[in-house]
Simulated assay, not measured.
Amino acid sequence: MVSAERIVRHAAEQIADGQRVELNGVAAELGLSRATLFRRVGNREQLLGLALAWLSDRSLDLCERRWAEQYGDALHTPEGELRCLKQLEWYGIRAATNTGVRRLLDEEPLLAIRVLTDPFGTVHPGVRQAHARLLRRDAEAGGFTPLLDIDDLAYALVRMAESFFYADVIAGRPARPAEVGRLYRALVLGDAARGPSHES
């Protein structure tokens, strides 16, 4: 039996490879009928949301593992950068520069933005919860004192990041993912004086 998780992973891999996700194609490749596929993962927009959320979770996991490999259990880098902010900066750059996601944004911008930013969808709530989890972990460890409720802060950070990551689609401005790390620090730490940090 082909599970819903397997279907979602297959669609996520297609997105990452820059392929267009179509229900008929996914069903045929996995040996399912379209009706069975629909029962397990919903319509095309719902499947895209699940697949993009899968990619988002995987990217965040890679960023957390990257920190553990480079800095272990440390709360800050040797240069003083807070763990959650560095991890979220890495995650944001990965998310904003993923070639498959960018292709989806280029080819189907309205659909892509709806799926990526819908507050009642799959992607945005998951990203917001991940931000809140990392912020809360480091606040509880003494890394910073939040000036806002953690959930409110996570919401503000994610919405701000979306406005920069997808600026070319939603505002006709160049997307500038590298700016997000500096803006995150300004909102979380009040550290507006530091220059932008880039992925190393």
Rank of each mutant, 00 (worst) to 15 (best):
L52Q: 14
F38G: 03
L55S: 11
R133H: 08
R34H: 11
E89C: 00
H76P: 06
R103S: 11
I93P: 01
T99P: 01
G181R: 08
T36K: 00
W67C: 11
V8P: 04
F144P: 01
R40H: 12
R39I: 03
A171D: 07
W67R: 11
R83T: 14
T145I: 02
L23R: 09
I150Y: 05
P109H: 10
R173T: 01
V101F: 04
R9C: 13
R194V: 08
L153W: 06
P109Y: 09
L75Y: 06
F165D: 15
Y155A: 13
R34I: 14
R66G: 06
A156L: 15
R65T: 12
A154D: 00
E162L: 04
A139R: 07
E45D: 13
G121N: 07
V180R: 10
D106H: 10
R103C: 09
R9E: 15
E89L: 01
A156D: 14
C84T: 13
A192N: 01
D151I: 06
L135T: 00
R103L: 13
N43L: 05
R58M: 09
L50D: 05
L62N: 07
V41G: 04
E179G: 01
G49A: 11
L23K: 07
A161Y: 09
L189M: 09
A74Y: 15
A192Q: 00
W90F: 05
E79N: 04
E45Y: 07
A74C: 12
A4N: 03
G190R: 01
W54E: 15
L60S: 13
G126I: 07
F38C: 00
